[in-house]
Design a binder for these strands. Structure first.
Lengths: 226, 226
DNA sequence: ACATGATATGTACGCTGTACAGAAACATGT
DNA sequence: ACATGTTTCTGTACAGCGTACATATCATGT
């Protein structure tokens, strides 16, 4: 089943594409998206900066490949299991996607920086459509609902990482809520009466609970339509 | 009501902050987000590159100010009108936000690149909460629903501009759909059966109609919950 | 006229992505 | 064993970036 792997001629490669992607991800996780540089990657894997260009045509391609690998790692198992109720299946995917992406905030901007036309991105929508078809939706409705769900999930993730982006990622969810709460309490009650009135709730934006609350509302709306 | 404007001492400023923001926006619209440079801005307004730092502490501050100005330009009129049914009010805001942002694709990544904590961003959520409160939601539900709506609207915009990002913005919606349709028709029917089956619908992702379809579903879900 | 003080400029540093030419390492044919 | 061909790696270089520093410029208050 493995590719015949015709022995390559010429000087053997010093590293692998995967090693380069690993290095890029490591840099992104430690220093943020801005500190991913071709020179940094090359230094990590131990080659000259321009040697990276034998593996990828340019830096953008490295980042695209990183995103693709990322999407390829999502576990479709729980998601494809027809025994599980369809809403649970959707939630499983949403939660998994959110966990994975929030763990690597820099990757989110990369994902939203270009079209989702890679094979793994396509597969994601494909699987999503399948669940919705299992739920009884027509092909068209399944496609439209997939869009809505993807928009919600990615939108929520985007807003979330935008929030915790710069201050070097607060550790626990509890602490992040406390930080947000403090920030809200420090703003003008006069200017933003509604926000301050529901400060406790607004502070809990970007928690798993709020994420799922919204997802449930979205699913309700999609469900009622069918 | 105008500020007393104590005559400033020292050398008078050669340009204004607004002129700098205008230049930045112009660069972003013509050459994409990557071609916004401090040197480019300075050249446009006719000052030396480092003179920009008299108006803003660094490049990031320029971009933040640009986003803030953007959000300040959204028209809250139709939106604040209590005569109009609340769903229409929400839709009016969503459509306006989408139109404005899609017209300047580069600004979207800026908006999602940092926390939405500027005064105009706060005001947006404030207004949104107000509409939902008018619709009869409790303060907490209004806050949570605001989150969901903002996530949907910004998520949809983000995915949309991600799509039309690189190929220099296809002109009309009709043409963009055709382009997408062609792209879908060229992929493997075997690998992506659901996508190809509903090709016509998937091609219409990122149209106003699909945007509103999803918004209606989201509103349905939020409505049913109250 | 002169000092004051904000603003503009000239220059420079370190960093970026990446193009180009040449050296190095391997498989193969003789 | 040796030359050849093919691929990859390295050295060097360039243009562009954000921005820090010292200095020149300009309007004002005395």
């Amino acid at each position: 089943m493995t590719t015949p792997t015709t022995r390559p001629i010429g000087r053997p490669r010093a590293v692998t594409e995967q090693a380069i992607l690993d290095a890029a991800l490591r840099l992104m996780d430690t220093g943020g998206a801005t500190s991913v540089s071709v020179r940094g990657i090359a230094a990590q894997v131990g080659i000259a900066p321009n040697a990276v260009y034998t593996y990828f045509p340019n830096k953008a391609a490295v980042l695209r490949a990183l995103v693709e690998r990322f999407l390829g790692e999502v576990n479709h198992d729980r998601f494809a299991d027809r025994q599980v109720p369809w809403r649970e299946r959707v939630k499983a995917l949403a939660v998994e996607l959110r966990e994975r992406l929030v763990a690597h905030p820099g990757a989110v901007h990369l994902l939203l920086g270009g079209p989702m036309d890679g094979p793994n991105a396509m597969m994601l929508r494909e699987s999503l459509s399948e669940v919705l078809a299992d739920a009884g939706a027509s092909p068209d409705d399944a496609a439209r609902a997939s869009y809505v769900l993807l928009v919600y999930v990615l939108g929520a993730i985007a807003l979330e990482v935008a929030e915790l982006d710069h201050p070097a990622t607060a550790p626990t969810e509890r602490e992040r809520v406390a930080t947000r709460r403090a920030a809200i309490d420090s703003i003008s009650t006069q200017s933003y009466p509604r926000t301050t009135e529901s400060a406790a709730t607004v502070a809990k934006y970007y928690t798993t609970e709020q994420f799922l609350w919204g997802l449930d509302r979205v699913l309700d709306g999609l469900d009622a339509h069918t």
